[in-house]
Amino acid sequence: MISHLLSISDLSKDEALNILDTAEELARVTETPVKKLPTLRGRTIVNLFFEDSTRTRISFEAAAKRLSADVINFSAKGSSLSKGESLKDTALTLQAMGADGVVIRHPASGAAARLASQKWMTGAVINAGDGTHEHPTQALLDAFTIRQHLKNSSGDLSDLSIAIVGDVLHSRVARSNVLLLSKLGAHVTLIAPPTLLPVAVNSWGVEVKYDFDENLDEYDVVMMLRVQRERMDEAFFPSEREYSRRFGLNGDRLSRLSEKSLVMHPGPMNRGLEISADSADSRKSVIVDQVKNGVSVRMATLYLLLGGN
């Protein structure tokens, strides 16, 4: 097993499946009255958030606490981080405090990898989102949720057709998901306006489409991405109305999806922009499952990184 979780590309298919299988057993345990396991008693996990995030931070916090670890939340606002302390000094501080694991969210791509590679600290580093690069635990919880609903006999995602729709350019969720879902055997299609696709998307080895309506009934999963308005400092599309009309999941498109298909969204949603309220709340929507599964997948990640050694 790897010693940090920085990128999906560091994981082999077997390692990824091992995380999902472990999460599945942990999910079963947490469904019983027993919500707490003693496994990481006495270990300290620091949530180091240089960027606002409520759901990811509380999901990691819940996961760590269910494994009996001590959790320290360290967010940029109102801390030494906002006073300009460098990543290195922060890491040295965490090392001095004896952090066994650090969950890091940072606006710069590669921040987690830098923290892991510089030997400033000995603890395991988990990337909880670095810039527009990756968000591996989100991809793992998405794969877990898909597998939960559309399980095949091989235990992976082979023969599934998955559409990832919207702001791929700014989305670390999309990048991690493309890597993981392809690794697990799924056929991934990216659907976005050309302005919201990365320049190098041709090298990702996935299908790219500009028309959401084409063969809409062939997707097993439709994963909507949040339009990241806060990362947009210029016009990427003419108007929100036009974006919504061409790339939003509305009631009409929802009705044209196949019977067993799933609707997913990593949250937080811009209801009415990339996804309509009736789609988000429909029977096909597994958005609430994604949140719930996030805790199990993060428990599995923490256990596999910190439980041994």
């Binding site: 097993m1 091992n18 299988d21 472990t22 057993e25 942990l26 079963r28 345990v29 019983t32 396991l37 003693p38 496994t39 494994l67 256990y303 596999l304 439980g307 041994g308 050694n309």
Partner: peptide, 17 residues
Amino acid sequence: MYRDDLRGSAPRSLGRT
């Protein structure tokens, strides 16, 4: 998950409860 000898060896995969 209840073992006291998890540290110092590779993580064990979980069985079913």
